[in-house]
Design a protein around this nucleic acid. Sequence first.
DNA 1: CTAAATGCAAACGATTTGCAGCCCC
DNA 2: GGGGCTGCAAATCGTTTGCATTTAG
Lengths: 144, 144
Amino acid sequence: MERAIRQRITQQLTVIAAAIEGDHTHPSAEDIYLRVRKILPHISLGTVYRNLQRLVQDGALQMLFFGDRTARYDPTLEAHDHFICQQCGRVEDVKVERDRRMDFAALVREGFTIAAHSLAIRGVCHRCGPRQDAASPDKGERRH
Amino acid sequence: MERAIRQRITQQLTVIAAAIEGDHTHPSAEDIYLRVRKILPHISLGTVYRNLQRLVQDGALQMLFFGDRTARYDPTLEAHDHFICQQCGRVEDVKVERDRRMDFAALVREGFTIAAHSLAIRGVCHRCGPRQDAASPDKGERRH
DNA sequence: CTAAATGCAAACGATTTGCAGCCCC
DNA sequence: GGGGCTGCAAATCGTTTGCATTTAG
C-alpha cells in the first residue's frame, strides 16, 4: 500500500483559511488573493489556488459556479441556496423553504445515485431593484 | 432613436441552429464546432461562438454551466432539471417532482425579484453506477 | 451597394503546472 | 534533512476580439 502523504500546515494555508472563514460573499480566488496579500505580501496566486483546492478536497470549503467561468468559494457547508443578482452580480445565501423534501425517488428507481443538489435562483436583489412592483412575483419566471 | 440592427440569416447560423436542435446531450461550443465542420469544413470556432451567443440572446438556446469552466448549450426551453454524473461527466435532463412550487414568497417579500431558478443534481448515473444498492437513497446527501 | 457576418490569429482571463529553492515536521 | 510547499513564470483551456474580406439583403 502506498504511504499516505503527510500534509503540512503552512503559514499560507492558515492565512488563506482564516481569510474565508465566516465569509458569505462568495469570493473568487482573486478576491482571496488580494485579502491574503495584505498579511503575506509575497504570496503567489498559484499558492492561493493550490491551497483552496486542498481546502475543498478536505471538505472545509465548497467550490461553486454561478454562470460565469469563475470559481467561487463558500465556507458554509450546511444546506442553503444561492441567489445571484443579475444586476450587481452579488451572490447571497438564501434559504428556500421546500415542502419537505423534493422527490428524488423516481431518479433513484432509475438507477441514479444522488450525492448532492444545488438550487440557484436568478433575479434582481433588494439593493438593485428598489421599487419593483411585487404584485406578480412569478411573472415571467423561467426554470433552467 | 437608433436604428435597429438588421440581423442576417447566414448559412453558418442555419447549420449551427440545426446542429443543436433537439439535442439533449448538452454539447459544448467545441462539440458543436466539430459537428458543424462536417457540413461547413471552413467554419471557424469564433463564428460558432458568435452564433451561439446570438441564439442565446434570441432565446432559442440556454447557456448552462455545470461546475467546470465550459459553457454547455441546451435547446430545451421548458422547465427541467439537470443531473450531472460525477463519473462520466454526462449531463442528463431530468424532471424532479416538486411539491407544487417552492416557496419563493419569503424572498419576494424581502424585495427580491425572481427571474429564473435552476436545480442541478450531482451523483452517479445509471450507466456508471450499475449495482449500487438503492436502499438508502439519501445517504450522505449534501446540498450545495 | 453596404453593413453585418466571416475566418483567421492574436488577445484574454481564470486556472494549472514545472521547477529550483525553501521550510515544516 | 528530506519531501512537501512555495514563488515565479510559462503553459493551458475556453472564450473573445480586431481586422481585412466576404456576403446577405
